[in-house]
């Protein structure tokens, strides 16, 4: 017996999309739902019972000084990393793109060098940073001392440590963003630069504002989203270099989540941090697309 055509088409749809939907439900939606439920409990790993405590976990996160510190630190980190990681990457990409015309070899070598931090394991690189930033024998302070400048405690000064980590974060993401910007630059039709030249935009500055920057719009949006999500997720450098210290001065959301969940086994509280983190990321991504999408595709 043959099924009617519409039924057969529906069966095909289900057969094609079903497995992926099932996998997404089991591997993504269900865990998120479980975490959301857990965030309203005082559940601890290994415990046999738990109690519903309503919004208490969230209240703790937003009122407790430690929880607030993790939030503000994360926001400072993101606020520093996004503009510098994008700005420097754009400058480097523009330089390498211009250099590639005359000296393709040098440009390719430099590109590889800038990309190395992306390819290298950040945990291993953190070790190198720790040595460079050592207060007395680190190369950075040796040089500063040699120049007669004060030698700060990069990783143990409470006011400085989050910016030190931000600098490492910038160092790490410039290479990746640069590659994205280079791809964006290569996709700009040369005709537009020629039209700009005929129209009188001859200076580099005018060419940049007339052609390069507007044409890089979609790339810039993508880089902004990637950089922001990367920055919000900062964890490796915190875990390996400072463990959130000194005195929670470099505590961040994801590190607090790790500490609460995997060291103190407070699954309920860790779930609440996860939910806040999740909502922040979704809100940020949506906002970026809503605000910027319309302005970068020129429709």
């Amino acid at each position: 017996m043959r099924l009617p055509r519409t039924a057969r088409e529906r069966a095909t749809d289900l057969w094609l999309a079903g497995p992926a939907i099932l996998a997404m439900a089991v591997l993504i939606f269900a865990p998120v739902a479980i975490v959301a439920v857990l965030s309203f409990t005082d559940y601890q790993f290994g415990a046999r019972t738990f109690h519903w405590i309503g919004w208490e976990n969230y209240a703790t996160l937003f009122t407790d000084p430690v929880g607030r510190k993790a939030m503000t630190n994360t926001l400072i980190y993101v606020a520093v990393v996004i503009p510098f990681a994008m700005g420097l990457a754009l400058v480097v990409a523009l330089g390498l793109h211009a250099l590639a015309e005359r000296f393709p070899r040098i440009s390719a070598t430099l590109r590889a060098a800038y990309f190395l931090p992306v390819a290298a394991t950040l945990v291993a690189m953190a070790l190198a940073w720790q040595m460079l930033l050592h207060p007395s024998i680190g190369l950075v302070n040796q040089i500063l001392g040699g120049l007669g400048l004060p030698a700060p405690d990069w990783l143990s000064d409470r006011g400085l440590v989050i910016y030190t980590l931000a600098a490492i974060g910038i160092w790490q993401s410039v290479g990746y963003n640069m590659v994205l910007f280079l791809a964006g630059l290569a996709a700009i039709p040369p005709d537009l630069y020629e039209a700009a030249e005929v129209d009188g935009a001859t200076q580099g500055w005018e060419r940049f504002w007339t052609v390069t920057w507007p044409m890089l719009g979609p790339t810039t949006l993508f880089v902004a989203v990637i950089t922001a999500t990367q920055a919000f997720r900062v964890f490796e450098t915190v875990a390996t270099l400072t463990r959130g210290g000194p005195a929670f001065a470099s505590d961040t959301l994801v590190y607090a989540l790790y500490r609460e969940g995997f060291e103190y086994f407070k699954a309920g509280y860790a779930s609440a941090i996860t939910m806040v983190f999740f909502v922040l990321m979704v809100a940020l991504t949506l906002a970026q697309f809503r605000v910027l999408e319309r302005r970068v595709h020129y429709r």
């Binding site: 039709p189 005709d191 537009l192 020629e194 039209a195 700009a196 030249e197 005929v198 129209d199 009188g200 935009a201 001859t202 007339t210 052609v211 507007p214 044409m215 719009g217 020129y298």
Partner: peptide, 21 residues
């Protein structure tokens, strides 16, 4: 001399309009 110094006008095959304007 550059294109703008020559004061020439050009129409391109691809039109080369600025998409953001």
């Amino acid at each position: 001399a550059t294109a703008s110094e020559r004061n020439v006008a050009m129409v391109f095959q691809s039109y080369a309009l600025y998409p953001h304007l």
